[in-house]
């Protein structure tokens, strides 16, 4: 091996090593900083269990809504051209860059008691803000752009020729969507689901603003962490460790499904 090759290789290894350590160590430190028995002990409180349940329920609901609505939007954006499409695409990405608490204020202005839809709620005798649905809505708002972007890209990558041929073979557009577009776009759809679910799981600012922080009702894990941070750092660390663990397991699951599907759909 020549000297310059060796240099390139060691430089590459160093850069990779630094990146991995940098991204991994702080999260690992959260697990290692606490005595495992104490960690478990501080998790064994009703508040933490409730927060975990609320987090899981709300993120599953949010992800369900995101997939249901977002898939339609993503497919439409991927397969149609119209004036102002670029503008719309950028606008749909805005929740990613908007500060979450600002998003929370925006949600209040629309769905709050005094918001645009306020009179509607009081007529229906319903409440949204500071209730469980508000948690889901805040998560949908912040996380949907991740799914839409990923799904749009993977739908756009499905060759229109496949769709055209499918139609000429007597299969309607709707069935073609299920038999061709979805299977071919599936890896992208799954990674979009994983991304947006993870974003919903970590959602804090908009939830805090729009849904409030009521243990057992609207307090999700991130809110529980923030609240614990104000009192007892070690229990905040313990809840963080729980959040990381749950997220890791779910993302791993999605990764495995993705791998399976990739196996079924070889690259053309």
């Amino acid at each position: 091996m020549t000297g310059s090759k060796l240099l390139t290789r060691s430089l590459r290894s160093t850069l990779i090593l630094i990146s991995i350590i940098y991204l991994f160590l702080p999260l690992l430190a959260i697990f290692l900083s606490q005595n495992p028995i104490r960690l478990l002990a501080s998790l064994n409180s009703e508040l933490v269990v409730k927060a975990l349940v609320i987090s899981l329920e709300s993120t599953f609901a949010a992800t369900g809504f995101i997939v249901g609505f977002g898939t339609v939007v993503a497919y439409w954006l991927a397969k149609h051209t119209f004036k102002g499409k670029r503008f719309l695409e950028v606008a749909l990405q805005m929740p990613i860059v908007a500060p979450p608490s600002v998003a929370g204020v925006g949600l209040l202005l629309v769905f709050g008691h005094m918001g645009v839809l306020g009179p509607l709620w009081s007529k229906l005798g319903m409440e949204v803000a500071f209730q469980f649905p508000a948690v889901v809505m805040a998560q949908i708002f912040m996380a949907a752009p991740f799914y839409i972007a990923s799904a749009r890209q993977s739908f756009a990558a499905v060759d229109d020729h496949y769709i055209a041929v499918s139609r000429t073979l007597g299969v309607t557009a709707w069935k073609t969507f299920w038999r061709i577009s979805v299977p071919l776009a599936l890896p992208g759809l799954l990674s979009g689901i994983a991304l947006s679910w993870a974003r919903a799981m970590g959602e804090f600012g908009a939830t805090m603003m729009f849904a409030g922080n009521l243990p057992g009702k609207t307090q999700t894990l991130p809110l529980a962490i923030y609240t614990a941070m104000e009192a007892d750092t070690s229990s905040a660390v313990a809840i963080s460790a729980l959040l990381l663990l749950v997220s890791f397991l779910l993302l791993l699951l999605v990764g495995i499904i993705d791998k399976r599907m990739q196996h079924a759909v070889p690259a053309s």
């Binding site: 020729h161 496949y162 055209a164 000429t168 309607t172 557009a173 759909v265 690259a267």
Partner: peptide, 20 residues
């Protein structure tokens, strides 16, 4: 009439076999 009822066989240049 939409494409799916026209009963025409259409073979594309790249053949567009469904890869999955």
């Amino acid at each position: 009439d939409p494409a799916e009822v026209r009963e025409m066989g259409y073979v594309l240049q790249n053949y567009a076999l469904f890869p999955h």
